Amino acid sequence: MGNPRMNRRAFLASTMLATPAFAQSWDATRPVRFVVGYTPGGSFDLVGRALAEGIQQRLGNPTAVENRPGAGGSIGSEVVARAAPDGTTLLIGGAGTHGVTPAVRRNLPFDTARDFTAVARIAEFANVMVVKADNPARTVQEFIEQSRAKPRGITFGSQGAGTSIHLTGELFRLRTGLNMTHVPYRGGAQVQIDINAGLVDVMFDNLPSVLGQIQSGNMRALAVTSPARVEALPNVPTMAEAGMPDFVVTSWVGVFGPARMDPALVERLSGVIRETALSAEGQRRLKALGAEVAVAGPAEFDAAWRADMARWQQVVRDARVEVTD
């Protein structure tokens, strides 16, 4: 994947090369909308809104974040796949929309591998294993032991069947051999409510979505799924430290456009987005969400997300997960 944290000075110099050609054809009065295929308050939504103001200031166009939730993010993805390739309709996507969803849904109204242009990767973040604040388990191993003692098994929630959160739970089931039943919801907020109410036993959520609940004490984090501990939760161990060395799952978020975008337009938009993420304010906002800045330009980003889709396809085959609606 290369080094995502590139030298900022060299990067800013390189982005200027595409500016003159871009300026000749770009209409700075046209609104640019960033479509999110999930409900407000989720990781993609939070990252998009954290950067929208900075992108607007640098690009010169009015910007808006538009939520189009449903079908594992594919409703929002379809909006962008069918949009004009003029740079005014872009998708805030990630491991869910461009990794898991195309792996589990066989009847998508678009071809994920063909109908999008990779513009820029923005950030990466861990998933985190969370339980109710007063759950007796203090560690992952304690949770596994108490779950094995339940004759009817346990439940795990996600913001929808066929999402990356669902697949992370399935991966945990495969690694532990626990009797786990998936409970899908339309959005992550309701899962959090039901975990706090004791109606669902556990959830693996993207860190930005659940960080506030953990910091406020409403939920307990047992482990993060990243290779190393995260800055936002320094006292929470990794899954490897918790006794599961083969359990590493990191999510990413980036911007996609429709297919057939002009390369000069892609380079300019990519430069603006990456510059915003790498700015002091952009980094501050992303880190506050529990995300790590990990920018990549169009070519590197394109190769990375395609590799991630192949990885999730293997998990789907192993877990025998299929969603057709």
Rank of each mutant, 00 (worst) to 15 (best):
N3H: 14
R5P: 02
N7P: 06
R8Q: 10
R9C: 08
L12S: 08
A13Y: 02
M16E: 15
T19L: 15
A23R: 13
A23T: 12
D27G: 05
T29C: 12
R30W: 08
P31V: 08
R33C: 06
Y38E: 11
P40G: 10
A50G: 05
A50K: 03
A50W: 00
L51G: 00
I55Q: 02
Q57R: 14
Q57C: 02
G60H: 09
A64V: 13
G70P: 01
A71D: 11
G73M: 06
S77T: 07
S77H: 00
V79N: 03
V80N: 00
R82N: 11
A84V: 10
T89Q: 06
T89C: 14
G93P: 00
G93E: 12
G94A: 05
T101V: 14
T101R: 05
P102D: 07
P102Q: 06
A103K: 00
V104H: 01
N107Y: 10
N107C: 07
P109C: 03
D111N: 12
R114Y: 11
I122A: 11
E124C: 13
K132C: 09
N135Q: 10
F143G: 03
Q146W: 07
S147E: 07
R148N: 01
A149Y: 09
A149Q: 15
S158Q: 04
G162N: 11
G162F: 04
E170S: 03
F172E: 01
F172T: 04
R173T: 14
L174T: 06
H182R: 03
V183F: 09
R186W: 11
V191L: 12
Q192T: 12
D194K: 06
D194E: 15
N196F: 07
A197H: 13
D205L: 07
L207P: 02
V210G: 02
G212D: 15
S216W: 11
S216K: 14
G217V: 12
M219E: 14
R220D: 11
T225Q: 09
T225S: 14
S226E: 05
A228C: 03
R229Q: 14
R229S: 04
R229P: 02
P234Y: 09
V236W: 02
T238H: 08
A240F: 10
E241C: 10
F247Y: 15
V248L: 05
T250W: 01
W252N: 04
V253T: 10
G254W: 03
M261G: 09
P263Q: 13
P263T: 10
P263H: 11
G271P: 04
R274Q: 12
L278V: 09
R284L: 15
L286N: 06
L289P: 00
G290M: 03
V295L: 07
A296C: 05
A296H: 00
G297E: 06
E300I: 04
E300K: 01
W305F: 13
Q314D: 13
V315C: 07
V316L: 06
R320Y: 07
R320H: 08
V321A: 06
V321C: 01
V323K: 01
T324I: 15
